[in-house]
């Protein structure tokens, strides 16, 4: 009975007793969720357009962040460094399309999945070789990102919000809006959606698949750069980020591999759920449950909707 009480009643009593703490925890979860969602967004873009489960998205985030900081350390002004980093991401996109995707076209999904592992290893090796393996400080101040925190007095307590977190959420929202506009209203966006619907039909109306793939990987590179800046500003830019990027995977299965809104909603659910779980239920089993809780939340959802919350309905034919 005691354990049941501790699982089902006590956490909620705690939540009710200190609502400010609850809000604080949820805010932290929200911010983590936004960052997960950004990584997941990169996955979704690529998966939609090329059907590749791009494992390298996590390392692309790290690589973009590292390149930015590394260029700045070499004496390049901050905003010029951003533009140069975008150039590097574009080069990566072209290289991936030329060297990896084009020769492997029409191969089974798992082969392409493995190829992105190869890309991951390559990027880790190149990144460490050029920029070194030590964690670096993100050039947040040079990019005019705010620092410090604001406090609100609500619900009988204080809620502390980091300004960088607020900025991250706003920038993420803007970027998603821009991407949505790009997808819905522009010529290239329509081509992208056509490719996502059917490769063959898109080819037959004269859309160049190779070109689309470069654009998609470049878009994912831009998303990776923004994510890298935001995440780097909160902690450091280091290869440890890559492990955290694995958190984007439960977000993906929760939201569905092919849905942009799914990635965002999934990210928020996972972020908040994980932080609440860790804070209120974690101590019961010794803490540290953050590492796997997200997967179990996602699994729970998945048992009811195998294609994720927003994924396309899976139709199977013989």
């Amino acid at each position: 009975m005691d354990i049941l009480y501790k699982i089902f009643v006590d956490p909620f009593v705690q939540m009710g007793a200190a609502p400010d703490l609850l809000v604080q925890t949820m805010w932290e979860g929200l911010v983590a969720g936004v960052l997960y969602a950004l990584i997941a967004l990169g996955f979704v873009l690529i998966f939609k357009a090329s059907g590749v489960f791009n494992f390298a998205q996590g390392i692309m985030v790290v690589f973009a962040g590292l390149t930015l900081v590394g260029l700045h350390e070499m004496g390049v002004p901050a905003f010029l460094a951003v533009i140069l980093t975008l150039g590097v991401m574009f080069l990566i996109a072209v290289a991936v399309e030329r060297v990896v995707l084009r020769p492997l076209v029409n191969q089974p999904d798992i082969i392409l999945f493995m190829a992105t592992f190869g890309i991951t290893y390559l990027l880790i090796g190149i990144g460490e070789l050029i920029f070194g393996g030590n964690p670096k400080r993100m050039i947040a101040k040079e990019l005019y990102l705010p620092s410090g925190s604001v406090e609100f007095q609500t619900l009988g307590g204080f809620v502390q919000l980091q300004k960088i977190d607020i900025a991250a959420s706003v920038i993420a929202a803007i970027m998603i809006a821009v991407l949505a506009f790009f997808f819905q209203k522009t010529r290239i966006g329509r081509a992208l959606r056509a490719v996502a619907d059917s490769h063959k039909a898109a080819l037959s109306v004269g859309i160049s698949l190779n070109q689309i793939w470069v654009i998609v990987w470049f878009t994912a590179g831009i998303v990776a750069l923004v994510t890298g800046i935001m995440w780097g500003a909160r902690s450091d830019v280091s290869f440890a980020l890559q492990i955290i990027a694995l958190k984007a995977l439960p977000v993906l299965i929760l939201g569905g591999f092919t849905s942009v809104p799914g990635a965002i909603v999934g990210g928020l659910i996972i972020g908040i759920g994980e932080k609440l779980g860790e804070f209120y239920w974690g101590p019961l089993v010794g803490g540290g449950i953050e590492s796997w809780l997200a997967y179990f939340i996602a699994l729970g959802f998945l048992l009811f909707r195998p294609q994720g919350l927003f994924g396309e309905k899976i139709i199977e034919r013989i």
Binding site: F117, G118, L123, L129
Partner: peptide, 12 residues
């Protein structure tokens, strides 16, 4: 580092 690069390239 080279090892990472070579293994990655070989996989591809």
């Amino acid at each position: 580092h080279l090892q990472f690069i070579i293994v990655g390239a070989l996989i591809i």
